[in-house]
Computed example of a mutant assay.
Amino acid sequence: MQTSESDNAEKNIRPETQEKDLEVTEEIPDDTELQKAEETEEETQPLAEDIKDKVSQVIESALGLFVKKDLDIVAIGDSLTQGVGDTSHNGGYVGILGNTLNDDGQQKVDIVNYGKRGNRSDQLLKRLDQTEIKASIEEADIVLVTIGANDIMKVVKNNFTNLEYEPFVKEQANYMERLRKIFDKMLELNPDATIYLIGFYNPFENYFSDVEQLGQIIDDWNSTGSTVALEYEQVNYIPTKDLFANTNQDLLYEDNFHPNNTGYKLMAERVLEYIRPEIERSE
């Protein structure tokens, strides 16, 4: 049974912090997804050919994995899907996943990447009406989705001079409703597909580490994604925030917002861990 927006917003947001000023005084770096969104309105081309043609990182833990033949995977969403920050230009976690699943030289898995830098949930919902994307989802066995970080970025940018908690609460409820519409549309196109919503880490941590509320906002929005996923039998939630927290590893690209090659490899490992039962064949 689906819950209402207001019920979930109240459940996910801590009441004692709703009215507090977040007191952010630093400038967000110029190279953010939100600012680049205006420059990327044209549809980016799928990266499937790059994934097939280039040899890059693979996931060592996949050794001995027997993959079902003729699997179709669609990856769609924002820059985390596109692979921004991957200096090998191989498609980020999606490319690593593709290289791993086809590592024996046989093309068993076809992965199409519709990642688009700057994409918000409202924009992704509209993109699902595009002919090429609709056709891909109709044929997909698995759909991987990253979305939501740019929704948060928009709130930050629109309220930067007076950044309070309430606008995030309001937009979180809108994000919840758009997620439902995204999943409904995908399952209408393909009732047999399995959808995986990949959570996001805290992109503000390096710049505003002293502002605890921003970390709570990330947790709240990830909680929203997890809550909505539980409403659908065919939708699963994959957490990634823990991969980037409390670590001495350098996991971010030079912009300190996007993952670097190592960060994307950790994401690929986590995604493979969750989708493995779906793609593995018994011998």
Rank of each mutant, 00 (worst) to 15 (best):
V235T: 03
S136T: 08
K116S: 04
V84Q: 06
D192P: 05
T32L: 11
R281P: 09
E19I: 09
N174Q: 10
G92N: 04
G95C: 04
Y253A: 14
Q123M: 11
Q172H: 06
F208S: 00
V145Q: 10
Q123K: 15
T194A: 04
Y253E: 05
R270C: 08
I111A: 00
K154Q: 15
D86A: 05
N202T: 04
H258A: 03
G115M: 00
V74I: 12
A229D: 07
G215E: 08
D129L: 02
I28K: 07
N159W: 06
E212P: 00
Q82D: 08
Q213M: 08
L101V: 12
E132L: 05
I96F: 09
E139A: 15
V84R: 03
V112P: 01
K52Q: 14
K181Y: 05
Q107P: 03
M153C: 11
Q234L: 07
N90V: 12
M186Y: 02
N206A: 04
Y207L: 09
S209V: 03
Q18G: 02
F200R: 00
K241H: 09
N222L: 06
W221C: 01
N158I: 01
Q57L: 14
A140D: 11
A173S: 10
Q18L: 15
Y232E: 07
D31A: 11
N113T: 01
T44S: 13
V156F: 15
N158G: 12
N162L: 04
N113F: 01
Y175S: 04
N260R: 07
K134L: 06
D78A: 04
I142H: 10
E39W: 05
I147D: 13
I275E: 02
L34P: 00
S61Q: 13
E171L: 03
W221D: 03
G263Q: 00
K126V: 14
N222T: 06
F257P: 00
K265T: 15
P203K: 00
P15C: 07
E5Y: 08
R276I: 01
A9D: 03
K54S: 09
D255R: 01
